[in-house]
């Protein structure tokens, strides 16, 4: 193919990325140096007076990030929630994906369908369902408190807690971990396990020497798919977290919707995007195992 034709082929994705990723990103970057408007939104970032241009920009928004440790703490806490959610999803999804991949071919599609079945109902409805489960009058809380009562402990309240938030985060994101893992595991040549066994590997050795390393790209893909949306999420902590379960996504949403402070909201968004990008690049590096199935 001629170079010109190649350039023509890469043009549409390049334009797409420029319009929908680079331009908004740059606008956000610019907004993070601007003053908030009097009634929300943004103040103008330059004035033209007597033919001379005066820029009206500030570093104040960025400085605010470090004025208190509150935002950094929240960021750390959100990272912790996201890491925990990703880890729990991985722990739950791996055996499930392995079981589905090992089951007879005619059953696999049905099992995968069951994994994605929750997507057919509305996201908010599913969160409200968890509110019922976690409510103080719910069977779960009452049952738990019956036990804590017998043990002479304080009664617990699951609603509006970190436990509730992480539980729901795991519930919502589990399919995003199961699907890439399954897609990876399903492609493994069963002859590889036969060969490993034939050459003297026990069941545990077969898993750790063959299945596990070959499944890492699937695991990284799943981790990225769970980690990124979890880190920025606000709906779940909004509804289930109360004041204890608040995450960085809630604060960003507050800045834009309630405080109407777009410049500071942009600062927080950019920090979150930056952290996400770094972690995704790292995961991509890790995922590039030679000879591994991608």
């Amino acid at each position: 193919m001629k170079n010109g034709a190649k350039a023509l082929l890469t043009l549409p994705p390049a334009v797409y990325l420029f319009l929908f990723f680079a331009v908004p990103g740059l606008l956000m970057l610019l907004a993070s140096f601007r003053f908030p408007g009097d009634y929300g939104g943004l103040a103008p970032w330059y004035y033209v007076e007597d033919g001379a241009i005066t820029f009206d920009l500030t570093l104040e928004n960025w400085a605010r990030l470090f004025e208190t440790t509150l935002y950094l703490q929240l960021l750390l806490k959100s990272l912790l929630f996201a890491v925990l959610t990703t880890a729990i999803c991985a722990l739950l999804a791996y055996p499930l994906a392995l079981t589905i991949a090992a089951s007879p071919k005619k059953h696999r599609d049905l099992l995968i369908l069951m994994v994605i079945l929750p997507f057919w109902s509305n996201f908010l409805v599913r969160i409200y369902a968890w509110m019922i489960i976690f409510s103080p009058q719910g069977a779960l809380t009452e049952g738990l408190n019956h036990i804590t009562g017998l043990l002479g402990l304080e009664p617990v309240n699951l609603m509006f807690s970190s436990v509730a938030v992480i539980t729901c985060l795991v519930y919502v994101h589990l399919p995003f971990m199961v699907l890439p893992l399954y897609a990876n595991l399903e492609k493994h040549d069963p002859a590889l396990l036969d060969a490993a066994q034939d050459l003297g590997a026990t069941r545990a050795q077969r898993f750790w020497k063959v299945t596990w390393p070959l499944s890492l790209p699937g695991l990284y893909a799943g981790a990225v798919l769970v980690f990124i949306p979890t880190l920025g999420i606000f709906a779940i902590p909004d509804l289930l977290g109360g004041t204890n379960g608040i995450m960085i996504g809630n604060v960003i949403k507050q800045q834009f919707v309630e405080s109407r402070d777009w410049p500071f909201g942009s600062v927080l968004s950019l920090v979150l995007t930056g952290i996400t990008l770094v972690l995704v690049v790292l995961a991509g590096r890790l995922g590039r195992t030679p000879g591994a199935l991608t």
């Binding site: 040549d189 590889l192 036969d194 060969a195 490993a196 050459l199 000879g291």
Partner: peptide, 21 residues
């Protein structure tokens, strides 16, 4: 004896070489 304990090795039709090694 299970396969891993037999003093017998197999060359598989698909070779079954470990792609990550």
């Amino acid at each position: 004896l299970p396969p891993e304990k037999r003093p017998v090795h197999t060359v598989f039709q698909s070779y079954a070489l470990f792609p990550h090694m």
